[in-house]
Design a protein around this nucleic acid. Structure first.
Length: 489
RNA sequence: CGGGGCAUAGCGCAGUCCGGUUAGCGUGCCUGCUUUGGGAGCAGGAGGCCCCAGGUUCGAAUCCUGGUGCCCCGACCA
């Protein structure tokens, strides 16, 4: 059978689509721009959710849920916010259908027009801050640390499975604080939670940075981001944490009495990651054989394949192994399908990115061995059955670490420092452009000009960017530190 | 919103230009036999509102008119 996916160097975009489709992660739907997340893809999301949720709880947050619909008037209360989202909102105008008088089907009942139209949330700041007004009266009510898991809708012109869909799943944290310092600390804390998750669980190295004014969230004073580099040399914004200052508190009149009984507006943050992370996961590790998953997020970490096909002796040994693996918390499965041959299963499990494959054959039983194949580097070796669980548990760690290291090496190899516009353009014209550290004069005007000329944008200013005197690559004006440019998703 | 493409079996497609048997191929599915350490072989079988609505015609998947939907590329954006 021919290869299931288009090679990356032939058509990267098609490669990505092939992986999503053939690894059974998601498919397009009858609704433009909306996807069906299939069980295997959703399994990855569930792993992400579980881990992130634990991390949110550990940092003191609680989950709650706010409505899908937002009164239209709410959206316009914060000027920058409405400006940013107005162009991509789905609007509910009616609440009832009726049979068409001519029998042609069902139509919107014109009598059932809503007095105030409802927006399908593109994000929930407005409805949440409208609610927080009632929740916060005293400094004793603060900080308010809430997260919600939800779907949101942004009517994007162009969509791509996982990376940009009209509807997507995410979490959005919304916190309220008594002081600007606390809000800033929260913003940075959540950026670090995201960065830790990305690096330790997704094995995806990220840059911790903050956005330029131009790239900031609509309504934020400052937006912090984690930026990852994909295999085609384009950047992916993988998570954002916003310091909203008092913008929403003022827009929704959320005040509290401080210890001196003085009324003050509260300080806000919001932060989110979405199913886009799955797109990032795919484009960080996967290869021309299919998906490659880091063990910590793989729905199935180890698959045991009977060779050449299941029989009583193999089934018995497999059952023993399954129990032993499960006892160690390993997510393992036994592929006892006797209608497929081993070769088919090997290819299928590679396509699905299962980190470790154990080939258990009749000869192995005689010899007391088992074949261990790792997905990340496609190597395989025969191992003694004795102690195999320990071996595999440690191998899963190795794979997790190897994937991170490999991605980090890739990023290092595709990170450049340039001082002239000629070098800058030359790097961007490469097949795999990558991150470019360069000096910028700090103006939105220059940023937009560079984007227009090269399609590259400022992904972020690294949190730890060292002071360094230099000249803007475009205007030659003075700059005191480098920022990171890249083409981006 | 521009440019392109597609809509026929679960999935992937051919057939459409130039109308004419019972609409076909690959794959998957069901049955049986054989095979079995990297995507098995043979035989038999089931499976179709050919996107929708009109029209032309003795006859439409195919021609005409009008719709609808999805995908890809670009602009915009997480």
């Amino acid at each position: 059978m021919a290869s299931a996916v288009t090679p990356r160097n032939e058509d990267y975009s098609q490669w990505y689509l092939d992986i999503v489709k053939n690894a059974n992660l998601a498919s397009n739907s009858a609704v433009r721009g909306c996807m069906v997340i299939k069980p295997y893809g959703f399994g990855i999301w569930e792993r992400m959710q579980r881990q992130l949720d634990d991390m949110f709880k550990e940092t003191g947050h609680q989950n709650a849920y706010f409505p899908l619909f937002i009164p239209k008037s709410f959206l316009s209360k914060e000027a920058a916010h409405v400006e940013g989202f107005a162009k991509e909102c789905a609007v509910v105008t009616h609440y009832r259908l009726m049979n068409a008088p001519d029998g042609s089907g069902v139509i919107v009942d014109p009598e059932a027009k809503l007095e105030e139209e409802l927006i399908v949330r593109p994000t929930s700041e407005t409805i949440i801050w409208n609610t927080y007004r009632d929740w916060v009266t005293s400094y004793r009510d603060l900080p308010l640390l809430i997260n919600q898991w939800a779907n949101v809708v942004r009517w994007e012109m162009r969509t791509r499975l996982f990376l940009r869909t009209a509807e997507f799943l995410w979490q959005e944290g919304h916190t309220a604080h008594a002081t600007a310092e606390e809000a800033q600390a929260e913003t940075l804390q959540m950026q670090e939670v995201y960065a830790t998750f990305a690096e330790e669980y997704m094995a995806m190295p990220v840059i911790r940075g903050y956005k330029t004014e131009n790239e900031r969230f609509a309504g934020a004073d400052n937006t912090y981001t984690i930026e990852a580099l994909m295999q085609d040399g384009k950047a992916l914004q993988a998570g954002t944490s916003h310091n909203l200052g008092q913008n929403f508190a003022k827009a929704f009149d959320v005040k509290f009495a401080n210890k001196d009984n003085q009324e003050e507006y509260v300080y806000a943050t919001s932060w989110g990651v979405s199913t886009r992370l799955i797109g990032g996961l795919i484009m960080t590790h996967s290869d021309d054989e299919g998906l490659v998953l880091p063990p910590r997020l793989a729905p199935i970490q180890v698959v045991i394949i009977p060779i050449p096909k299941p029989n009583e002796a193999l089934d018995a040994k497999a059952a023993e192994l399954l129990a032993a693996f499960k006892a160690r918390g390993v997510r393992v499965s036994y592929d006892s399908d006797d209608t497929k041959r081993p070769g088919f299963k090997f290819a299928e499990n590679e396509l699905k990115g299962i980190p470790v494959r154990l080939g258990l054959g009749s000869r192995d039983l005689e010899n007391g061995t088992i074949e261990v194949a790792r997905r990340d580097n496609k190597t395989k070796e025969s191992q003694p059955l004795e102690g195999i669980v320990d071996h595999v548990v440690s191998l899963l760690d190795d794979i997790q670490n190897n994937l991170f290291q490999r991605a980090l090496d890739f990023r290092t190899a595709h990170t450049h420092h340039v001082d002239t516009f000629e070098e800058f353009e030359a790097i961007l014209n490469r097949d795999i452009p990558g991150f470019i550290y360069a000096h910028w004069d700090g103006t939105t005007e220059t940023e937009l000009k560079i984007k227009e000329m090269t399609k590259a944008t400022i992904r972020c200013i690294p949190n730890d960017a060292p002071e360094e005197a230099g000249k803007c690559i475009l205007t030659g004006k003075p700059s005191h530190r480098r920022v990171i440019f890249a083409k981006a998703y």
